[in-house]
Amino acid sequence: MAGEVGIIKRDITYSGDVLNTTSRIQGMCKLFNEEVIASADLVSELRLGEDFMAQTLGSIKLRGKEKEMALLALKPLRLA
């Protein structure tokens, strides 16, 4: 959901399950000591090609979620 808040200075605010899930996944970066973590569902849609390596972190039960979610760490491949 998106909405406008404020009278003098207007801002757009977002809320909902997608942002909650994103926040939970972002919180896993510190736990796994990774720069970028994404769900396996998102990575399969992105078609990253050969520019990134995806490392499976396993199926994780995120706080506030009923089902486990498969997470991947994404790392750019550096050309030497």
Rank of each mutant, 00 (worst) to 15 (best):
M1G: 15
M1R: 12
M1I: 11
M1E: 10
G3Q: 12
G3A: 14
E4H: 07
E4P: 06
G6C: 02
G6I: 01
G6D: 02
I7L: 07
I7N: 09
D11H: 11
D11T: 09
I12Y: 09
I12V: 15
G16H: 03
V18T: 11
L19A: 10
T21M: 14
T22I: 10
T22H: 13
R24Y: 03
I25P: 00
Q26S: 10
G27R: 02
G27S: 00
M28P: 00
K30W: 03
K30S: 05
K30L: 04
L31N: 10
L31D: 10
F32P: 01
N33M: 03
N33P: 00
N33S: 05
A38W: 01
A40G: 04
A40Q: 06
A40T: 04
D41G: 05
L42K: 06
L42A: 13
V43Y: 01
S44Q: 09
L46A: 08
L46K: 04
L46Y: 05
R47S: 14
L48I: 07
E50D: 14
D51V: 07
D51L: 08
D51N: 13
M53A: 10
M53W: 05
A54H: 01
T56P: 07
T56Y: 15
L57V: 01
G58K: 05
S59P: 06
S59T: 10
I60V: 15
K61T: 15
R63Q: 13
K65G: 04
E66S: 12
K67C: 09
E68R: 11
E68T: 13
M69E: 10
M69V: 15
M69L: 14
L72F: 02
A73D: 02
L74E: 00
L74C: 03
K75N: 10
K75E: 07
K75C: 08
L77K: 15
L77H: 09
R78M: 08
R78W: 06
A80L: 10
